[in-house]
Design a binder for these strands. Sequence first.
DNA 1: ACATATTTTTAGATTTGTCTAAATTTTATG
DNA 2: CATAAAATTTAGACAAATCTAAAAATATGT
Lengths: 228, 228
Amino acid sequence: MYFCSIEKYMTQSEENYLKAIYHLGRQNPGVISTNAIAEEMQTKPSSVTDMVKRLAEKGYLNYRKYQGVNLSEKGRHKALMIIRKHRLWETFLVEKMNFTWDEVHEIAEQLEHIQSEKLIDELDRFLSYPKVDPHGDPIPDRNGDVESRNSKLLSNLDINASGICIGVRDSSSSFLRYLDKNEIALGDRIYVMEKEDFDDSISVRIGNRNLQLSHAIASNLIVTQELE
Amino acid sequence: MYFCSIEKYMTQSEENYLKAIYHLGRQNPGVISTNAIAEEMQTKPSSVTDMVKRLAEKGYLNYRKYQGVNLSEKGRHKALMIIRKHRLWETFLVEKMNFTWDEVHEIAEQLEHIQSEKLIDELDRFLSYPKVDPHGDPIPDRNGDVESRNSKLLSNLDINASGICIGVRDSSSSFLRYLDKNEIALGDRIYVMEKEDFDDSISVRIGNRNLQLSHAIASNLIVTQELE
DNA sequence: ACATATTTTTAGATTTGTCTAAATTTTATG
DNA sequence: CATAAAATTTAGACAAATCTAAAAATATGT
Ligand SMILES: [Mn+2]
Ligand SMILES: [Mn+2]
Ligand SMILES: [Mn+2]
Ligand SMILES: [Mn+2]
């Protein structure tokens, strides 16, 4: 619970840093290093230091010199609101604007910075309160709550096990187009038939088709073994 | 016809200047002064000079020192594309997002800078190719063509004449809310019953209601006497 | 026409976000 | 533990867009 003083809008750059820091925090919890942020943001560590100081100043980050950062409660909430917008816009683009799932990310990167709470809540309603975006990533609700799911990487399933594909870890255009080409879609049940020790590739069955998937592919597909 | 070299994106600020210059050119054709642009953009003449030089450099404006500017063909086309986006987004917000016509302008000012031709063409389709925005302003098509309409200001109609309200000259929230409060809407036929010499106010009839409108109001309502 | 007012441009400063290069701190290693 | 390597921060510069104050050009009035 934080005080809602008359906060000025953040710049797009500030918002992008917060989002990057949130994502890095998910990948490996704990404190996040300057270098990691620089890598994620495709910029220099010195630029990161500057921005990190500003965000800490404004209360979005906890920061100790040379020790890295993590998000404050206020920063976490803000990051989740940006991610909510990003994923709702991606859903809009696919559901209503005839975009494919590999075309939406760049445009959502722009749209996520539009400032209007009403717009985003109306968009949510218009899309019938979707739970996940076109890539299977969960959409935080207006309070910043995200449904957590019991998920695994396909590459970690045992032989003879199966799971329903619910997301992708890498949502680059090239990976998404690979999946399209091989007719692998979210919602498909994937059975692991064989695992090759030599290169960690796996044989899977989807519907009535058998496919050979490299480790690079299998380790980027997220599956669930729970009932929905 | 201009060559489509690999143009970098314009900044939002550059786009806003182009739009302002376009609007000023409509208001009184000919050359546009630095001061007029500064007034429209709520900034200082010196800032205008800087920006005008850059836009001229890039071929969007014709500019001679101390002589003012006007849009080149390339600049006019670019301005129309931004206006197209603005008005399509306003239409979207009213038609699909439950916004009222007095709430949409500020958000459209943000959305008009989103860069995606496909998105804007899909939005056009999604909205069934609207001809006008929620304020009655015509929406340029994807080639930059705008339907011109035969319009007058209500204040210029003769006694006993009538016209259909097709637009507003001032689309500030306060004016739009005044119209809502007095149940004056686009599409209404307005009859001029009486004109008061003293203060230029007029008596009108809309449906079965009689209203007294000040000159300030009547001179901001656009009507047409043509059949649609 | 020519002094005065107005408009426009220039010069120099500021803010945001970035960069490179150098300095500092932390971490790893013999 | 001392020293080398790696990570991080500082210092100083730059580009975009803005500002104020001053200079230059244009317009106006008698
Ligand atoms: Mn995305
Ligand atoms: Mn996504
Ligand atoms: Mn508008
Ligand atoms: Mn409008």
